[in-house]
Design a protein around this nucleic acid. Structure first.
Lengths: 214, 214
DNA sequence: GTCTATATGTCGATAGAC
DNA sequence: GTCTATCGACATATAGAC
């Protein structure tokens, strides 16, 4: 009804995305009706179809918006720091913080990955986190090229390990909190400092690795 | 109907658990009716209530059964190997294999963690994976006490990192597969070998860590 | 606003093992 | 004869259709 008559170009689109993000975070894809999204956004259903061709496209748009956030985080980290090690430390902390700041959004993404199997995952991989992942891999590779990091590991593997450590922490926090041995459940910064420290000590070229071999 | 008249003590209970596991893996808790479970198990609904007081208890029983599997894996690893490093290597590999062998079960567990927030997570933490997690922490602690592992890290943190690396690999496989830099999506053994290697080089006391400090 | 469908959980009866 | 696994039918709450 008679809201502010803003003619800002992306305003309507933005409202729809926000509404869709909220509803898709709460319930599964099939359980969210376009009508409900329109209601949440305070607009008409037909209006949604003005901006997005169908429900699927809207859904993917929400996912894409989420990944752009991460991309920006990594770019900022690269710009702000000199050494690769510093970039990694900074990015890990910011990444986890980003997850914790918008838990609904993360749950939305992971529901997508867990529920539907391969079909949607492919689209998501291409449109979504591919850029972030590749960028992180590139950072690690440049670290290897510069000699800052050991050259005998697969960069993609370490990228997986880093992202995974944060995602797992985010996902399991409520459970970990109940274990007496866990002191970091409410200290994400401390957690990240710890895991990055462990990772780095394994990544720097100077460490003597011969004694590990059994 | 005229099935085999087995009077094996836990036979009926087992059938119910298997049916519940399958259905809960496919759909969410609320979307699975006791009737459907009874149908899947080939018995009557009333019969389920003979073994389990209510739907909640049945659900928790399924989760508990899943965690007992992991517990056994770790115990076997501890019994079969001498050094802590060998135990960790072996457990990591078996753990990931266990996840990949029963993907439906893993999805069930993670749906539980992601969907419902704190309330169920607590019960699950107490009844479910607490034992496994604590046992893994104990292994790491004994490694520290024996001098096999560095003493300046939190064992629970490394346990989280290890379990998380496997869980994240399992969860993201379909997506990782599409990234050109990832060569390990279809090689879980190689993945685990890689991440354990990275972790260990960071955990052994001999590595020189001073150069990391910025 | 009523009606229908479906959900959880209960009750009393039955059939067979020992 | 008792005990236990099992069943069909029932009570009750609730969500959605129209």
């Amino acid at each position: 009804m008679g809201e502010l008559p803003l003619t800002l170009e992306g305003e309507g689109r933005q409202r729809i995305l926000a509404a869709a993000e909220k509803l898709f975070s709460d319930k599964a894809f099939d359980a969210v009706s376009m009508n409900a999204i329109a209601l949440q956004a305070g607009i008409s259903k037909a209006n949604i179809y003005h901006y997005f061709p169908n429900k699927d496209a809207l859904y993917l748009a929400v996912l894409r918006a989420a990944s752009r956030n991460l991309q920006k985080l990594l770019n900022d980290a690269v710009d702000a720091h000199g050494t690769v090690v510093e970039v990694l430390r900074h990015f890990a902390r910011c990444h986890l913080q980003a997850l914790l700041d918008r838990p609904e959004l993360v749950r939305l993404v992971w529901r997508e990955i867990l529920e539907k199997g391969a079909p949607r995952a492919r689209e998501f991989a291409e449109q979504g986190f591919a850029d972030v992942f590749s960028a992180l891999v590139a950072v690690l590779e440049s670290g290897q090229a510069r000699g800052e990091l050991r050259a005998d590991f697969a960069p993609a593997l370490v990228a997986t390990l880093m992202l995974g450590a944060n995602v797992f922490f985010f996902q399991s926090r409520d459970i970990l909190r109940h274990y007496p041995a866990v002191g970091f459940a409410d200290d994400p910064a401390g957690y990240d400092a710890g895991i990055v420290e462990i990772l780095l000590r394994g990544l720097i070229p100077e460490s003597s690795a011969d004694t590990v071999r059994a």
